[in-house]
């Protein structure tokens, strides 16, 4: 039924860009999947893409053994505080970053293999009332945390051994930062969204807060996913988890907004709608593709440049999808069910 309902939103059918099933990974010991991701892992002079799965109390690393066959390499048990999410570290090898907490993130940990002790370990990177965290290229991690009095925004450079090499304090905006996104192709630029529905821009090298630009009142509580700088404009991919469905344009899943950082003015560029009916949940963006799990248990994929839905994974008889994440380096889409099943699709 779900597939039939969703078919009309794909004007040209699934087409070339539809998802091709590659392989399945089944974690029979998983009692409730909370996140899935990929990590580059180097061992014995060979670098490969591995899958990372997380439940509240354990994070597992999976290795490709043969076509369509995954084997669990190791499981880190984290029993004191529940795991909330895996924080992807783009281009980083042999390091998995996880956020733990109850309702909010209380600590960030690195999971790694230590060749010195020939064992898998985990180390604490940060504690506090952490509101947002993002992993950036070159093993950098930015987080915002809040005390009663003030907000702290900080970037740490991570070492291969799980420590922090270097720290840079970023100037905090007055409003709480709710999400960060790296700016494609600009190593020293970072954008964030705030609780007051603004986009802020930092210089990561100097820690300066360069600009605060209001998004507008139409879509409150916007979350940034990705940004691109082109022709003097900053294009920011936003999602609106709390936006209401409207008759004219349906429920917004992702919006691409162009900001002129010089003037602070903005204009909507592209608008991706959820299929009629189902509301959206967590979304993920890679390059110019967006994916989100719908409340119906289906996964929808959008081409953010053309503003159209390009593929839908219906919930199907095996169950509802709970997670949708893009794999590193364009390796495809990971779709996960609560029971620990993960499907890898080529996109």
């Amino acid at each position: 039924d779900v597939a039939e309902q969703l078919t009309p939103v794909l004007p040209d059918g699934p087409g070339e860009e539809s998802l091709q099933f590659v392989s399945e990974l089944k974690d029979s010991s998983c009692s409730g999947a909370v996140d899935v991701s990929t990590v580059w892992w180097a061992a014995a002079g060979h670098r490969e893409l591995r899958v990372v799965t997380a439940s509240e109390s354990a994070v597992s690393l999976w290795q490709p053994l043969a076509p369509d066959c995954w084997g669990k390499v190791y499981t880190w048990h984290l029993r004191e505080i529940p795991v909330i999410q895996i924080v992807p570290l783009p281009d980083t090898c042999n390091l998995v970053c996880v956020a733990l907490g109850e309702l909010e993130i209380g600590e960030i940990r690195l999971l790694l293999y230590s060749s010195e002790t020939d064992s898998f370990e985990h180390s604490l990177v940060k504690t506090g009332n952490i509101k947002a965290v993002v992993g950036l290229k070159d093993q950098r991690l930015v987080s915002s945390s809040r005390t009663m009095q003030e907000q702290q925004v900080e970037m740490v450079s991570l070492s291969e051994t799980g420590g922090s090499k270097d720290k840079q304090t970023l100037m905090p905006p007055e409003e709480t930062v709710t999400a960060f996104a790296e700016v494609e192709g600009m190593r020293e630029a970072l954008v964030g969204t705030t609780a007051g529905n603004s986009v802020v821009v930092w210089n990561l090298k100097t820690g300066q807060l360069l600009r605060k630009m209001h998004i507008g009142y139409s879509y409150p509580a916007s979350i940034c996913h990705r940004a691109y700088s082109d022709s003097g404009l900053l294009f920011v991919v936003l999602s609106h988890p709390h936006a209401k469905e409207s008759e004219s344009c349906g429920s917004p899943a992702f919006r691409v907004v162009a900001f002129n950082p010089r003037t602070g003015r903005s204009a909507g560029v592209m608008f991706c709608c959820l299929p009629p009916g189902p509301a959206g949940r967590r979304g993920d963006v890679w390059d110019t593709a967006g994916a989100a799990v719908l409340t119906s248990g289906a996964v929808a994929v959008w081409d953010l440049l053309r503003g159209r839905c390009t593929a839908v994974l219906p919930a199907g008889p095996a169950g509802r999808w709970a997670l949708a994440r893009w794999a590193s380096g364009g390796a495809g889409l990971l779709a996960g069910r609560c029971n620990g099943t993960v499907h890898l699709y080529r996109y």
């Binding site: 100037m171 600009m186 020293e188 630029a189 821009v201 210089n203 100097t206 300066q208 807060l209 360069l210 600009r211 700088s229 022709s231 003097g232 404009l233 900053l234 162009a258 900001f259 002129n260 950082p261 010089r262 003037t263 003015r265 903005s266 204009a267 560029v269």
Partner: peptide
């Protein structure tokens, strides 16, 4: 979107804003 909507555009906005913003 046009320049009239968004105001004057600068290709070096990052460097310019970094030079103008408080350290």
């Amino acid at each position: 979107c046009s320049e009239s909507d968004l105001g004057p555009i600068s290709l070096n906005w990052f460097e310019e804003l970094s030079a103008e913003a408080p350290p």
